[in-house]
């Protein structure tokens, strides 16, 4: 059994294009096309199913942001919805057989760094640049290294959490898969004669059982991790803006 990262599609001396980047582009294109499709021909009074779905999604995003960040930050709803959408769709792309981009640490670290920039922006805005630097010396100046570590751990822990959950799901599914393959080879190989020799190559036990695991590891875990990522982003920005 071999656990690999995303496939590298193109490589030269100073640049390589990994499969997860390409999957992310596809996911971005799908989300964009979906948004364009859902928001065409909007009417004041919803007449089409499409518009009802679009309104439901927008309302849900607005309520989520208003409920967690307050009225003041309601303009962050598009960001929260975008993070949620790209995270869910990236993780769910594993259902289509692609390597999920969120199973690649670089992808989630990139998202987390974007969010970290926003958090720092709000921190500086709340207490001024001097106040921001001074907050590293709180409550006593000796704690400066600890404060720097805890600041750096914000994006790291966000990225590790998302990556770790998706990657552990992938590895566990793969382990179960190979174990079931070995089991069916052993059991069916025990049938005497030619029949056993032929059936040995058919991993019959791999049918069905991994799908049940996949409901948890792919569907549930993907959605909940996307929600948590989005939630942490909102909470962190809100706390930062309060100084």
């Amino acid at each position: 059994m071999e656990v690999n990262g995303a496939k590298i599609i193109y490589q030269n001396d100073w640049f390589f294009l990994s499969g997860s980047v390409v999957t992310t582009w596809v996911v971005m294109a799908v989300i964009t096309l979906l948004c364009i499709f859902l928001t065409r021909n909007l009417k004041v009074h919803a007449t089409s199913k499409r518009q009802v779905i679009a309104e439901f999604l927008v309302k849900a995003a607005n309520n989520l942001v208003k409920g967690n960040m307050g009225e003041r930050f309601s303009y962050y709803a598009p960001l929260a919805a975008a993070v949620l959408a790209i995270s869910v769709c990236s993780s769910l792309s594993s259902l289509l057989g692609a390597f999920p981009p969120t199973g690649d640490f670089s992808t989630v670290l990139g998202w987390a760094l974007v969010i970290f920039t926003l958090i720092t922006y709000w921190k500086i805005k709340a207490s001024g640049f001097g106040g921001y630097l001074k907050s590293y010396l709180q409550p006593v100046a000796v704690l400066l290294p600890i404060n720097i570590i805890s600041e750096a751990m914000t994006p790291m822990s966000m990225a590790f959490r998302h990556f770790g959950n998706i990657a552990s799901g992938m590895i566990i599914s793969m382990l179960v898969y190979s174990a079931l393959g070995a089991l069916s080879a052993t059991v069916l190989g025990a049938i005497p004669g030619v029949v056993g020799q032929v059936l040995k190559n058919v991993p019959i036990f791999q049918v069905g059982l991994p799908a049940i695991l996949s409901i948890y590891f792919d569907l549930f875990s993907s959605c909940i991790q996307a929600f948590i990522f989005c939630m942490l982003m909102m909470v962190n920005i809100k706390l930062a803006s309060e100084g």
């Binding site: 822990s157 590790f160 959490r161 990556f163 770790g164 959950n165 552990s168 909940i224 929600f227 948590i228 939630m231 942490l232 909470v235």
Partner: peptide, 17 residues
């Protein structure tokens, strides 16, 4: 609760990494 659980899960994820 989900947020708190996610935060407390961090140590487990670190060990997994």
């Amino acid at each position: 609760m989900i947020l708190g659980i996610a935060l407390s899960e961090t140590t487990g994820i670190y060990s997994f990494i």
